[in-house]
């Protein structure tokens, strides 16, 4: 075993060091801070369809809130109006294709179907039974849902840190003690955004 050095770092020294680290000349290539103005991307109908879709991917149940309560759709809406703007139309077209398939296969729009029938629509898409263009949407929407549920709340999702609570991720600390790497113990969550606020700036 290598000799263990005592961990002398406190949160205070970490912050102090980070602040004085600007010794490096300033002027980064890109602006790191991102504060997009919330922009309405979805019509009420589109929002209902998307929420129905996301809620079947990750339903509210005895384990706690699902994708919608965690705010995956808000992340997607904020980002399609900002960083992901180039894919906005593809996303909306894919959403329309899913809703159209729900109508042809189950008789009404996705949001108006029972949970069971909604699951059938998703299963058809996932198994390749539904038209090809719904599959790309499924994969992209699932990926964006994961980002919205488990990414930093700074980007519009992960409401009340519920996504991190779901997978028991204990939060982005600036420095950690050895106790926070002990196996098999529950770690006290540190509910903060890495962007230095409560994470809800949208």
């Amino acid at each position: 075993m290598p000799e263990e050095k005592p961990d002398t770092m406190t949160r205070r020294t970490v912050i102090a060091t980070a602040a004085t680290a600007a010794f490096v000349p300033v002027g980064a290539i890109r602006s790191a801070a991102q504060t997009p103005a919330p922009q309405r991307i979805f019509s009420p109908e589109q929002k209902r369809t998307l929420e129905a879709f996301l809620e079947r991917l990750c339903p509210k149940d005895e384990l706690g809130p699902g994708a919608v309560e965690i705010g995956a759709q808000d992340y997607i809406e904020v980002q399609l109006g900002d960083y992901l703007a180039p894919e906005k139309q593809t996303f909306l077209d894919g959403l329309a294709a899913v809703d159209a398939y729900a109508r042809t296969s189950q008789g009404s729009g996705l949001a108006d179907l029972s949970a069971e029938k909604q699951d059938q629509v998703l299963t058809d898409i996932d198994s390749g039974k539904a038209p090809q263009n719904t599959r790309a949407f499924f994969n992209r929407a699932r990926r964006l849902m994961l980002e919205g549920m488990f990414g930093d709340p700074h980007y519009g999702g992960n409401k009340n840190f519920a996504g991190w609570d779901l997978i028991r991720y204990p939060g982005p600390r600036l420095a950690t003690s050895p106790d926070l790497q002990k196996m098999g113990v529950a770690i006290q969550p540190y509910r903060r955004s890495a962007w230095g606020n409560d994470g809800h700036n949208h």
Binding site: A21, V24, P25, V26, G27, A28, I29, H154, A194, W195
Partner: peptide, 11 residues
């Protein structure tokens, strides 16, 4: 140059 305080995030 990148700026540690601005660019390097636990994100």
């Amino acid at each position: 140059w990148m700026d540690p305080a601005k660019d390097f995030k636990a994100d």
